[in-house]
């Protein structure tokens, strides 16, 4: 199936397996003035769906300096309804205009009955969902003319009807649709806590050749008596446990383009750059172990 999109890597040069950052409007000017060394920058595609104006002017200027990654949050690949054709068209126009090196979306749904819910909502891992997600990824890849990456979600509920474990669901989706995976290690950690599974075991079930990008972010902990739940709010530093899982993952599969996501309480650019440098250091250590094993 993967040969279906052989031109995936022809469009833009491959991104080095180093850490980039998610770009926020507050950092446009500083990035353009200082041009810090970064392997790539990532933006939420939906934020560039206006017709013109400063967002596009800044993105054009940034695209002259950095390879781009387009990360979508609104396609609703796990939605029971057909994909939103207008949204697909706007996506395609942006991909044609900016030629991003990476394109990604989520295993989640966010749209139903004409409402756009603006959250990445969980999908029961059933055979029915597997078929739906696979068909939607097909439609998106066909519209864009290239393979995409899909990201594992952070979840707060699970479903009694789920028939397939999450790692196997993701692997099966990738194998059937020809897409690859965007492995969000913080999401694995958050879900592992919320549902009581072992994140190491989960990660060990994802074949390295399917992983095209890694996401790292901070999360928060909500406490109510004995009950605690971890919430994926992208509003703080990556936690020590997640750094540990990242090092182990790189040791197992080798380094990948990696992104520091920070979307709420966005700090100074310097803090994001420092977090990205730390990811490079952790990955280099992990990669040494990977090379030693290989």
């Amino acid at each position: 199936m993967r040969a279906q999109f052989p031109h995936l890597c022809d469009r833009a040069p491959p991104i080095p397996a180093k850490a980039g950052i998610g770009v926020k409007p507050a950092h446009y000017r500083e990035l353009l003035a200082d041009r810090p060394s970064l392997p790539f920058i990532e933006v939420h595609t939906e934020n560039y769906m206006g017709e013109g104006g400063p967002p596009h002017a800044y993105l054009e200027a940034l695209a002259e300096i950095y390879p781009l990654s387009f990360h979508g949050v609104g396609m609703s690949l796990g939605g029971a309804e057909a994909l939103d054709r207008g949204h697909l068209r706007r996506w395609r126009a942006l991909v044609e205009r900016y030629q991003p090196a990476l394109v990604s979306e989520h295993i989640a749904w966010s749209r139903f009955g004409g409402l756009a819910l603006h959250d990445l909502l969980p999908v029961p891992y059933t055979r029915q969902s597997l078929g739906i997600v696979r068909n939607h990824i097909d439609a998106m890849q066909t519209a864009l003319g290239r393979a995409i990456l899909v990201e594992n979600p952070s979840t707060y509920i699970s479903f009694r009807e789920s028939e397939i474990a999450e790692p196997e669901f993701l692997v099966e989706v990738a194998r059937r649709s020809g897409c690859r995976l965007l492995l969000d290690i913080n999401n694995v950690y958050v879900s592992a806590h919320n549902h009581g599974f072992d994140p190491r075991n989960w990660l060990s079930r994802i074949p390295g050749d399917l992983v095209g990008e890694i996401h790292l972010a901070g999360h928060s902990l909500i406490r109510d008596g004995d009950f605690t739940i971890r919430v994926d709010d992208h509003g703080s530093h990556v936690c020590p446990d997640v750094w540990g899982l990242y090092a182990e993952t790189v040791a197992r599969i080798g380094p990948r383009p990696t992104l520091i996501e920070w979307d709420t309480d966005v700090p100074e650019l310097a803090v994001l750059l420092e977090e990205a440098r730390r990811a490079d250091t952790v990955a280099e250590e992990g990669d040494t172990r990977h090379a030693a094993v290989a």
């Binding site: 707060y156 509920i157 479903f159 009694r160 009807e161 919320n194 919430v231």
Partner: peptide, 21 residues
């Protein structure tokens, strides 16, 4: 009723989604 039997604090869990939205 969608949650697995014995799932702790269903209301808190769903509330995270609603708060996010």
């Amino acid at each position: 009723n969608l949650l697995p039997p014995g799932s702790s604090r269903p209301d808190k869990r769903f509330a995270v989604y609603k708060n996010n939205v």
